[in-house]
């Protein structure tokens, strides 16, 4: 700004620059920031101490994946989303059982909450930060069958690959709900225990069906830490796309 105002001052002093101006021409281009552009040494020196501290914590190898995965690679369900929802189910269920005596029935996270892809190769602490940079925690909400129906309707309307586990949703060829099953069963129960993040439980991403839940229990377990623990537990992470959310063809 200082340079600009100096320039402004100079131009006012010696030119007739204040004649009314008319916009006559606009050009645009987009510049890809790639390795053809040199790094600025001074800035690198400034960043280095910040970078070093983070690097020490981030580079620990936790697991391995043979495949790259990212959230937009398929419709309705994706390997990365399935892995995340299954991880929540596997890691949070024993905790919830120990505290309440109940079991988690299903898990729902949101598509928009998958904040990065996973590259092929080593999975590190940084991977967990990439997919889950937020500080959100796991909560379990007790939903009535009506609220569960609203959750299913949300999935049917959205048609996005929101991570889910423990529930199967099948759409007909027109995109309407054909059927859904929780733990493989269609029969209705009085209530369902749904694990999610505290962000979604407060109605984030328009998941309004959580707002009326009678009972929401926090597990004091950050999602990112859950993924770190899950990765540590597994030698290899190789999730696949499956039948949990699909649309039937004619």
């Amino acid at each position: 700004m200082k340079t600009l105002s100096l320039f402004f001052l100079l131009s006012v002093l010696w030119s007739c620059a204040d004649a009314p101006q008319k916009l006559t021409h606009i050009e645009s281009k987009q510049i890809l920031i790639s390795d053809t552009i040199a790094e600025n040494k001074e800035l690198e020196t400034f960043i280095t101490p910040y970078r070093r501290r983070i690097k020490e914590e981030m580079e620990g190898v936790l697991s391995y994946t043979p495949n790259a995965m990212y959230k937009a690679e398929a419709k309705f369900n994706t390997p990365i989303g399935n892995m995340m929802a299954d991880a929540v189910f596997e890691m949070a269920n024993p905790l919830f059982k120990e505290r309440t005596g109940h079991s988690i029935d299903l898990v729902i996270l949101n598509y928009g909450g998958i904040r990065g892809g996973i590259n092929a190769g080593d999975i590190t602490t940084r991977t967990a930060y990439n997919i889950m940079p937020f500080e959100n925690e796991v909560v379990v909400a007790e939903l009535t069958s009506d609220e569960l129906q609203a959750l299913v309707d949300y999935l049917v309307q959205n048609k996005a690959a929101h991570p889910i586990s423990g529930i199967q949703v099948i759409l007909d060829a027109q995109g309407n709900l054909s059927e859904f099953k929780v733990n493989g069963a269609q029969n209705q129960r009085k209530s369902y225990y749904v694990a999610t993040s505290d962000y979604l439980a407060k109605g984030g991403d328009r998941m309004d069906f959580f707002l009326s839940a009678r009972n929401v229990q926090g597990l004091d377990y950050k999602l990112r830490n859950l993924f770190i623990d899950y990765f540590k537990k597994k030698d290899t992470i190789a999730p696949v796309r499956d039948q949990r959310f699909i649309q039937l063809q004619n």
């Binding site: 004649a19 009314p20 101006q21 008319k22 916009l23 006559t24 021409h25 606009i26 050009e27 645009s28 281009k29 987009q30 510049i31």
Partner: peptide, 9 residues
Amino acid sequence: RIDFYFDEA
């Protein structure tokens, strides 16, 4: 990058 060019009205 967007370049705006002006002329004297």
